[in-house]
Amino acid sequence: MHARAVAVTTTALLGAALLAPASSAQASHGGPGPVVIAHRGASAYAPENTLAAVDKAAELGIDWVENDVQRTKDGELVVIHDDSLRRTTDVEEVFPGRAPWKVKDFTAAEIARLDAGSWFGAAYAGARVPTLEQYVARVERHRQKLLLEIKSPELYPGIERETLKVLGNEGWLDRRHVAGRLIVQSFSADSVRTVHELKPAVKTGLLGTPAVADLPAYAGFADQINPSHDSLSLGYVSAVQAFTGPHGRPMEVFAWTVDDAAGARLTAGYGVDGIITNRPDVVLAATRGQLPDTG
C-alpha cells in the first residue's frame, strides 16, 4: 500500500490547524497518545484476520481491531485481506484447478473448508476464514471496537449496503456501537460516501493521503483521513484536524502500519489520533506505556 505525501500549502490553514482542539479519538481514550489499533487483529502474533488474531489482541489489552471485508461467490461477507485466497490459506491444495483462487469465485462453504492458520504456524492449524458475523461476534465477546475496511469495493457492487445489513443484524448499528465502537473505512471515496449516505450515524474513514485542497469535500462524508505513516508530516496531520467532519467534530488521522517503537514515537509526534499496527503491544508501550481502557 502506498499513499502520496502532501504538503500543506496555506500558512493560514496551518495556523488554524495548530489551534484545533484535541481529537475525539484521543479524548475518548482517556489518556495521552494515540489510540492503538491491532491491524488485522494482532497479526504479528496470530494469523491475520482470524478469530485467533482478535483473541490475541484482547489478550494484549487492545481495544481496537482492524479487519478487511470481501464477498464470496454466493454473497457471504468474509474477513480476508487479499482478493486471492492463495497467500493465507491452503486453497491451492484443496482446489488445485481453480487458479487464481479469487475470493469472489468461491462459495462460503468452499472457503469454510480452508485452513487459514497453518501458513502462520502449526499452533494455528485449522483456523478458518471467518464470516463477518463470526468476526463481529468475537469482537463483541471481548467488548472490543472495530475498524472495518471495505476491501476492493469495485469488485463487489453493493457491498456497502450488505456490510451495513450484517452489522445491523448483529447489533452493531445501535447507539452504543456507532457512538464509539465502530468505524468503516475504505480506499474508495465513493465507497466511504455510500456508507455515509446509507447510514449517516456511522463514523467513516478514507484511506490514503488526499491533497489538502480536496479535504473540504471529503469532510462532508469522512470523519477520518487514514494515511500511510511514511506519507505524513506534522503540517499535514494538523491540516486534516483543522477541518470539521460530518459529525461536527474535528477530522482525525489514523496512520498505518507502524510496527517498531521508534516509528511509533515518530508517528505519535505528528499528533495523529490513532496508529494501526501488527504489534500493538510494542506501539502501546512506545507511545504511552499503559494499557488502553476497555470502556
Score class of each variant (00 low, 15 high):
residue 93 E to G: 09
residue 112 A to R: 07
residue 138 R to T: 04
residue 74 D to K: 07
residue 256 W to V: 08
residue 68 D to H: 12
residue 139 V to Y: 08
residue 262 A to I: 02
residue 173 L to D: 03
residue 178 V to T: 14
residue 15 G to H: 12
residue 189 A to W: 04
residue 284 L to A: 11
residue 18 L to M: 13
residue 211 A to V: 03
residue 243 F to S: 07
residue 183 I to W: 12
residue 111 I to G: 00
residue 229 H to D: 12
residue 134 Q to H: 10
residue 109 A to F: 12
residue 120 F to H: 13
residue 90 D to Q: 07
residue 163 T to N: 06
residue 276 I to E: 02
residue 179 A to Q: 13
residue 266 L to T: 08
residue 139 V to G: 03
residue 264 A to L: 10
residue 216 P to C: 12
residue 286 A to I: 09
residue 288 R to Y: 11
residue 213 A to I: 03
residue 54 V to F: 02
residue 74 D to E: 04
residue 97 G to V: 09
residue 29 H to G: 15
residue 39 H to N: 08
residue 116 A to Y: 00
residue 244 T to P: 06
residue 295 G to Y: 12
residue 55 D to V: 00
residue 253 V to I: 09
residue 135 Y to C: 02
residue 229 H to I: 00
residue 6 V to Y: 00
residue 274 G to Y: 07
residue 55 D to A: 14
residue 146 L to A: 02
residue 287 T to Y: 07
residue 259 D to T: 14
residue 127 A to Y: 00
residue 207 L to D: 02
residue 252 E to V: 09
residue 241 Q to M: 08
residue 143 R to N: 15
residue 49 N to D: 11
residue 37 I to P: 05
residue 255 A to Q: 06
residue 236 Y to N: 03
residue 139 V to T: 05
residue 249 R to P: 02
residue 147 L to M: 12
residue 234 L to F: 13
residue 53 A to W: 01
residue 140 E to A: 15
residue 98 R to G: 03
residue 80 I to W: 08
residue 107 T to C: 11
residue 146 L to F: 04
residue 248 G to Q: 06
residue 271 G to R: 04
residue 18 L to W: 05
residue 17 A to T: 05
residue 218 Y to N: 06
residue 274 G to N: 04
residue 154 E to P: 01
residue 75 G to I: 06
residue 198 L to S: 04
residue 235 G to H: 01
residue 5 A to S: 15
residue 224 Q to S: 14
residue 170 E to K: 13
residue 72 T to Y: 05
residue 187 F to I: 13
residue 271 G to N: 02
residue 22 A to I: 12
residue 131 T to I: 06
residue 53 A to E: 10
residue 92 E to M: 14
residue 222 A to D: 09
residue 183 I to M: 10
residue 2 H to C: 03
residue 62 I to E: 11
residue 28 S to R: 14
residue 114 L to P: 03
residue 212 V to C: 09
residue 186 S to P: 09
residue 237 V to D: 10
residue 51 L to A: 02
residue 105 D to L: 00
residue 227 P to Q: 05
residue 223 D to A: 11
residue 26 Q to Y: 00
residue 166 V to I: 13
residue 293 D to N: 15
residue 139 V to K: 10
residue 271 G to H: 04
residue 259 D to I: 02
residue 111 I to W: 13
residue 27 A to T: 15
